[in-house]
């Protein structure tokens, strides 16, 4: 049981040993102490779950790799504006999860706890930067086409 706390980041909330119900959900939410460490933990979970749901969709779509005509149409579907916006959001989700994951690994080994808040700030700044730069590359042809058509 000693290792149970090692697996998760130190800022994990107390688990409630109740049956699933709306009351339990609110109870769990109230038990979270909303500070930046908690925010990092919740965001890491949410982005992780989003990526777990996205992976099967992505692999299902890529079955079209077995048929060139189907693959070209799959790619074309993903070139419609709504999918492009989703692509930029996806880059942001991946960037946060990757950068925050690096922070968790780094601070397990190298940083004193009084530096954790500063590190999380760095994670957020880098996430926004990566998302803006990649989002610009992904969306600019579409914005230009929309504005100057």
């Amino acid at each position: 049981m000693v290792f149970q706390n090692m697996q998760n980041s130190s800022d994990k909330p107390a688990s409630l040993h109740d049956k699933p119900s709306l009351r339990t959900v609110f109870g769990v939410l109230r038990s979270y102490r909303m500070r930046s460490g908690m925010g990092a933990w919740v965001l890491h979970r949410l982005t992780g779950l989003m990526l777990v749901l996205y992976l099967p969709l992505h692999v299902a779509g890529l079955r079209s790799l077995q048929d060139p005509a189907a693959f070209e149409q799959y790619v074309t579907l993903y070139r419609s504006p709504l999918f492009k916006i989703a692509e930029a959001v996806l880059v942001g989700v991946v960037a946060f999860h990757a950068l925050n994951g690096l922070r968790i690994m780094l601070q397990d080994f190298f940083f004193r706890s009084d530096r954790h808040k500063m590190l999380f700030g760095v994670v957020m700044v880098l996430t926004v930067l990566v998302t803006l730069v990649a989002g610009y590359q992904i969306l600019s042809p579409y914005v230009a086409a929309f504005l100057f058509q």
């Binding site: 790799l65 060139p68 070209e72 790619v75 070139r79 600019s140 042809p141 579409y142 230009a144 086409a145």
Partner: peptide, 10 residues
């Protein structure tokens, strides 16, 4: 493709 767009192709 749109102007300036880069496209994944088989």
């Amino acid at each position: 493709a749109l102007d300036g767009e880069h496209v994944i192709t088989y």
